[in-house]
Write a protein that binds this DNA or RNA. Structure first.
Lengths: 117, 117
DNA sequence: GCAATACTTAGCCTCATGGCACAGTATTCG
DNA sequence: CGAATACTGTGCCATGAGGCTAAGTATTGC
């Protein structure tokens, strides 16, 4: 329950969205969707040095999007779906809001001249 | 159709996620979910100066999340739901990937010691 | 045990972001 | 017309993000 201490306040969304705002990190998430992988294997194919790549891995972990564990000299990464669900939940909340007020104001700004005050 | 020229390459996600990574901007999106609003009205309640706030508005517009139009001295902002759908689509794609490979590897990194190669 | 492997740490650089103040423009109201 | 309103433009500043190189540590294989 209290498994992820940073996960529960609204602020977590900042980190999750920020983490996903980088194409390298989104690609990592995509690859990990196919299953866990070592840092080295993950890094293959990205046009950057390992230290740079590791920063992305840490960003993803710091924001809870992946989980990593080291065994021997290899660090294995795995996706945490529950964390992506945060984004899903936020989107769902917005959708609920739009749907509750129907399309009354739909084309408002399309022709703003007719509406001022 | 070709209404929004920046919207169509994969790179658009960078901007959309980045735009949503800020709590001020997410709140703006949330408020606009209730209907269009002027910049001044939107800005009310945020602890920052108007020029600072305007930067957020422009970021949101630059990344297609809102649409704005000026009428007289008032600029009115409205949400663009289609753009948030980009996020939704990306998430859906990830989910499809997880679901296609069932939970065979589910608890891999939970106990990494038992698995190394 | 020595070498290769797989990260990891440290330090540096550049650019982008988010905030500010202050001054300017354009509408609208009296 | 003059003042108030609602942005808008400019320039500055501090921080953080994302990249690099170079050197270090810990495992594993020969």
């Amino acid at each position: 329950m209290a498994q992820y201490s940073e996960a529960l306040d609204g602020t977590a969304l900042d980190g999750v969205f920020a983490a996903l705002a980088d194409p390298t990190r989104r690609e990592v998430v995509r690859r990990l969707g196919r299953g866990p992988m070592s840092v080295g294997d993950l890094a293959r194919g990205f046009p950057m040095t390992l230290p740079s790549f590791m920063k992305h891995v840490r960003t993803l972990e710091a924001n809870g999007l992946i989980r990593t564990a080291k065994s021997g000299r290899v660090r294995t990464c795995a996706l945490r779906r529950d964390r992506l669900a945060l984004v899903d939940d936020w989107l769902a909340e917005q959708r609920r809001a739009w749907e509750s007020r129907t399309d009354r104001l739909e084309q408002f700004v399309t022709d703003p001249e007719e509406h001022q005050s």
